[in-house]
Amino acid sequence: MASIEQGKQAILLNKKYKEGLLNFLSAQGILVFFLICMFAFSLFSEQFLSQSNIMTVVRQASIIGIIAVGVTIVIIGGNLDLSVGSMLSFSTVLVVDLHDKIGPAGAIVLMFVLTLMIGAVNGLLIGFMRLNSLIVTLAMLSAVQGLVLIYSGGKNVDIANQSDTWFAIFGRGYVLGIAVPVILFAVLAIIVQVGMSYTSYGRRIFAVGGNPAAAVYSGIRRNWCVFSTYLISAFCVACAALVLGSRVMGSQNNVGQGYELLVLAGIILGGTSLLGGAGSVWKTIIGVLILGFIQNGLLLLGYPYYTQWLVTWVIIILAVWLDLANKRKRLFTTHS
């Protein structure tokens, strides 16, 4: 009897210990993993932790980051947005092509308007017609890619006179020694985070994502809320297109290809649940930066750039698994 007692005590203790470890891993696991990678990279590459390299990484991550800020809001509201990749292609091609035709100011305005219109179509279909967001935005992903090809006739576009246009500032400029894309990223992130945490609008989005039926029963206009998240997402894509177009001063038809997955990876890594009703922009920023540093580290170590795709995949699986493990309080499921 005594030994049984001890055995049970041991199970209980073991369980407690395991739960503690799990909690720690799921809350901080990604950060720990990140630190180990950083440490490893810095051993093999002296450049890695240099100030200029860090600034480079942040600058490069800012395009994904800007888009991820918008998509985070869509996800908190309980939906997905997979169309951001080809929307980025569309907006970049548009702004670059129009730059020489109607001037930078007109190009920017028109690009924003058209991008927001695509977002509005997403919002109408998902918010008001209640169609499944995964399917609608996936369809939009290919529809918009088609639109880009029709628009450009399959040719790449670029800006003829790249040296003296103020359009360069968005991608190449610096203010007080900080790259403009980084500033844009930071400002956007702060505005959106403040909006989500401190306004009644943010509260409504959290409610709609957390329990749509209860939100409606609380007098919240669910349709409009969902609609607005797609507008925000489109706005962020337009900002990202501004940075991208200005940086390369030209565009291929498919520059944005794969961005939707990188964005999603950053968000998941940060720990925002895809179920909706929870999450934050801060988490997304951390996730996006982690992704950026790991990709940069791999490049510095001399791996070809496509290894990053594989590594990204591994990290996403790891993140999703730890998240789930925390929910069911064990690493492996016992159910068949």
Partner: peptide, 19 residues
């Protein structure tokens, strides 16, 4: 199903209909 956002805290649920 219809009255509460279970993942939200008590205070935020209380004020949700009169933001």
């Amino acid at each position: 199903d219809k009255g509460l956002i279970l993942g939200m805290n008590c205070r935020d649920n209380m004020t949700l209909s009169a933001l």
